[in-house]
Design a protein around this nucleic acid. Structure first.
Length: 872
RNA sequence: GGGAGCAUAGCUCAGCCGGUUAGAGCACCUGCUUUACACGCAGGGGGUCACAGGUUCGAGUCCUGUUGUUCCCACCA
């Protein structure tokens, strides 16, 4: 048998074990009609991204689920891949170029895109390699990229279909513009932040010279684009002005005063400047009143069409305009005013609402089935509460702006005809206008939102739009495991996409997790510098410890704080298992894993505990309660197996009796092997390593059968009996500890009990675990003696002659106190049991349990009384 | 403005369908080189489960309200 090191060293095993799995091909799955399908598609990380703890969390979750089902015999596939991440990736390469003093325009589109591919080839593998460090059992043969050929074909197919169906349109609408990323964004890519700002009250003189109206605005620079002033039609203060004109200060334009319900009389002055090109509400108002549109900012948010302000940055323009208005006497007042400002989620730049010709997906027709499927429970959210968040959003969903002014991404398959203006949208690149036949056509330069391709992920990875065996077998996927921050960006869009193109849900369950925060509860971010690199954690504690830390100690859907010390606890746990296995191996003379024909009471006890743990943990895993499952397994291993069972086997192993030793070894090996299987989904490396070192059949632990509940190994009666012996041992230990008796002092122990059988059988264990010299079991009490220390359980009284340590008076007091407590318990239980309401209404098993408890309290009280008497 | 989460030991958190005397890790106290493990063992202290009502034989768990806190959504000029 291999000799194990005293301490588990993850660094020495993880790489080797991962290679063993790869070489064995165990991660790969094929559709297999003889098995049940199980599938997960990875939330594709950004191709240029670096692994962070958020990835560690959701990949651990996916790996636990995949390994669990694989071991249960499912054809389990976990499809990995990466996302081309349009804006993020392009920004990285732009930044690279900037360092060389270049812009993307210096290279031109084609060369730039080639540059990004180069970058992707160079760094795209990094995150994948990092996922492997975690132990992820992805089917790497099926790795995909959202811009690979298949995905590109899927994207194109979807775009064309939606266009043909009239669900994709191009329109001049208000969109969110990021002047830094220089592109349009969808609504969900904008984060709103409350910021202190100002409400400037500006006088707009009436054209007829009869005075002025005062408008209030938080963005005075946009006044250059004003094309009306609006008041509420019911606002008596202003009805006489409706239809009149005002002269827009700083320009020489005249604009009308109009009436619109949208204006709230209570807010500001009740007069609103209307800037259709730079505010979504004003845009609507403009539509209703057929106002003209004046765009006053360019793509860099510099002023255009603004006379002397042209060329100024929007914030410079704001300062200049406010100061000019003040000097003209048109600034009535300035109020402090907190308001929410939209920021680009990518770069944090303040978003500018702007009218722009963009492509949109009409959402209403897609939202219907997407809502139905969640309401009807065909897609379930875990935890359930997230379905409400989803539903609320989907009910109010607005059209999705899908075009991006980038070069890196899926270019929109639309060609504009210079002759007739027709737009040709086509699966294959056209060489002429489909309407007039002109060859003078030009392709739309824009690319699609990155999430447009990720929305198709659950079916494009299986080969859609082709009909493939994989698609047929694994779609709908079983479960998807994203963080709650991408419910709208990704989960929602997969659902309506799945319904639209596949006619079926993309996954049966969305298992949502929270955010990993730092130890102070803050989000980890580059700017705070509080990010923790999972690779460092793995180096220090091992991947298994990191994984176990991610899974346990938090509940699904809630954020978690990351404490390195918790990893330490899990590292210690790994070491505990390591040493338990080391102990088993050191004592092993057998080469086969089989339970002995005859089992000792302690064997039945541990098997019974194991069996219950298997049943409970499996149930928890079935319900996505991974943390609860992990902690049950943890407790069983540490408390039951290590602290009790291993100690209990020592007398047999050291007895010199070959048969006794072999029987102990057999049970040890059996239980340890089952433990390794149970724990494997959570801590795959150490469990595989140990399994390989132990006698085993088969090639790898990761493809062994997951333990199943076995009625034949229940032993409820025997297990309960044996717990009486354990209770006696605990009682003796507690008494000794209280009196500071060192383990070297081994008094004889007398056990007085009405049921001596189990204690007779357990004599050796009592001697070992309670440090007894010799153990006598009797039905009869000893002669009263001053020198005895006593302990009592509900099934026995225990006496130890420790006359030199014991103070008879204090001993009596102590027992009297315990007795008092036991009687109080008994009284409480009796009262409960005598309450007819309780006995008639509570379920039978609860009443039975209370009865048993009362019986035990009664027995304990009786034993304590007896102890007291024998001291008298 | 709408919605959701959280509030349990000094700290961070579990507590799954309402049913013991509410648990874990860390921290703390006492003792221990017991030949698997000091990354350990044994024993121990520590909680009015935010507050107020309610439902129930029984509430940390369900309901209502209050307070505090975090987050999400929303076209709050």
């Amino acid at each position: 048998m291999t000799q194990l090191e005293k301490t588990y060293d993850p660094a020495k095993t993880e790489k080797r074990i991962y290679k063993l799995w790869l070489d064995g091909g165990y991660f790969h799955a094929e559709p297999d009609p003889a098995k049940k399908p199980f599938s997960i598609v990875i939330p594709p990380p950004n191709v240029t991204g670096q692994l962070h703890l958020g990835h560690a969390l959701d990949n651990t979750i996916q790996d636990v689920l995949t390994r669990f089902r694989r071991m249960q015999g499912y054809a389990a596939v976990w499809v990995p891949g990466t996302d081309h991440a349009g804006i993020a990736t392009q920004a990285r390469v732009v930044e690279e170029l900037r360092k060389q003093g270049l812009t993307r325009y210096d290279l031109g589109r084609e060369a730039f895109v080639e540059k990004v591919w180069e970058w992707k080839r160079k760094y795209g593998g990094r995150i994948i390699e990092q996922l492997k460090l975690l132990g992820s059992s992805c089917d790497w043969e099926r790795e995909r990229f959202t811009m690979d050929e298949g995905c590109s074909r899927a994207v194109r197919e979807v775009f064309v279909r939606l266009y043909e169906k009239g669900l994709i349109y191009k329109g001049e609408r208000i969109i969110n513009w990021c002047p830094h990323c220089v592109t349009a964004l969808s609504d969900v890519e904008v984060e709103h932040e409350e910021e202190p700002g100002h409400l400037w009250h500006i006088k707009y003189p009436l054209k007829d010279g009869s005075g002025h109206v005062t408008v209030a605005t938080t963005r005075p620079e946009t006044m250059l684009g004003d094309t009306a002033v609006a008041v509420n039609p019911g606002d008596a203060r202003y009805t006489h002005l409706i239809g009149k004109s005002v002269v827009l200060p700083l320009t020489d334009r005249e604009i009308p005063v109009i009436a619109d319900e949208y204006v709230e009389m209570e807010f500001g002055t009740g007069c609103v400047k209307i800037t259709p090109c730079h505010d979504p509400n004003d845009f609507e108002v403009g539509q209703r009143h057929d106002l003209s549109q004046i765009l006053i900012m360019d793509n860099d948010a510099k002023i255009i069409n603004g006379g002397k302000y042209d060329g100024l940055d929007r914030f410079e323009a704001r300062r200049a305009i406010v100061s000019d208005l003040a000097s003209l006497g048109l600034l009535e007042k300035t109020e402090e005013h907190a308001h929410s400002v939209g920021k680009c989620e990518r770069c944090g730049t303040t978003i500018e609402p702007i009218t722009s010709p963009q492509w949109f997906v009409t959402m209403k027709p897609l939202a219907g089935p997407a809502l139905e499927t969640v309401r009807g429970g065909r897609v379930k959210f875990a935890p359930e509460r997230f379905s409400k968040i989803y539903t609320n959003w989907m009910e109010g969903v607005r059209d999705w702006c899908i075009s991006r002014q980038l070069w890196w991404g899926h270019q929109i398959p639309a060609w504009y005809c210079a002759e007739c203006g027709h737009i040709t949208v086509s699966r294959a690149d056209p060489d002429k206008c489909e309407k007039c036949g002109s060859a003078n056509i030009e392709r739309d330069p824009d690319v699609l939102d990155t999430w447009f391709s990720s929305a198709l992920w659950p079916f494009e990875v299986f080969g859609w739009p082709d009909k493939t065996p994989e698609l047929d077998y694994w779609y709908p996927t079983t479960v998807v495991c994203p963080g709650y921050e991408i419910i709208f960006l990704w989960v929602a869009r997969m659902i309506f996409s799945g319904m639209e193109y596949m006619g079926d849900v993309p996954f049966k369950t969305a298992f949502i997790h929270g955010i990993v925060r730092d130890d102070k509860g803050r989000k980890m971010s580059k700017s705070l510098g509080n990010g923790i690199d999972p690779q460092d954690v793995i180096d220090q504690y091992g991947a298994d410890a990191l994984r176990m830390n991610m899974i346990s100690g938090n509940s699904p859907g809630n954020d978690m704080r990351f404490y390195p010390e918790r990893c330490e606890a899990m590292r210690n746990f790994a070491n505990k298992i390591w040493n338990a296995a080391r102990f088993v191996m050191m004592n092993l003379t057998i080469g086969e894993n089989a339970l002995p024909g005859e089992l000792e009471p302690e064997d039945k006890w541990i098997l019974s505990k194991l069996n219950a743990t298997v049943r409970d943990a499996t149930e928890n895993l079935d319900r996505y309660e991974l943390g609860v499952a992990a902690s049950k397994i943890y407790d069983f291993i540490w408390d039951d197996f290590c602290d009790w069972y291993i100690e209990l086997t020592k007398p047999r192993l050291n007895s010199g009796d070959e048969r006794a030793s072999v029987s102990a070894q057999s049970v040890l090996l059996y239980v340890l092997t089952e433990i390794l299987k149970l724990l494997h989904p959570f801590m795959p490396f150490i469990t595989e390593e140990l399994w390989q070192a132990l006698p085993h059949e088969g090639d790898a632990l990761m493809i062994q059968k997951f333990p199943e509940y076995d009625e034949a190994l229940g032993f409820p009666g025997e297990a309960a009996d044996f717990e009486r012996v354990m209770a006696a041992i605990r009682a003796v230990r507690a008494r000794r500890a209280e009196m500071n008796v060192p383990p070297s002092k081994r008094p004889s122990v007398l056990i007085v009990t009405p049921s001596p059988g189990i204690f007779e059988a357990g004599r050796a264990y009592i001697a070992k675990l309670a440090y007894a010299g010799d153990v006598t079991v009797s039905r009869d009490a000893p002669e009263a003696s001053e020198g005895l220390v006593s302990a009592a359980t509900d099934s026995a009284r225990i006496y130890m002659p420790l006359s030199e340590l014991v103070d008879a008076e204090r001993e009596r007091e102590r027992i009297a106190k315990e007795l008092e407590k036991a009687r109080a318990d008994l009284a409480r239980l009796d009262a409960k049991l005598q309450n007819a309401e309780f006995t008639s209404k509570a379920p039978e098993r609860v009443v039975a349990a209370e009865r048993e408890r009362a019986d035990k309290a009664k027995a304990l009280a009786a034993n304590l009384e007896e102890s007291l008497r024998s001291l008298a």
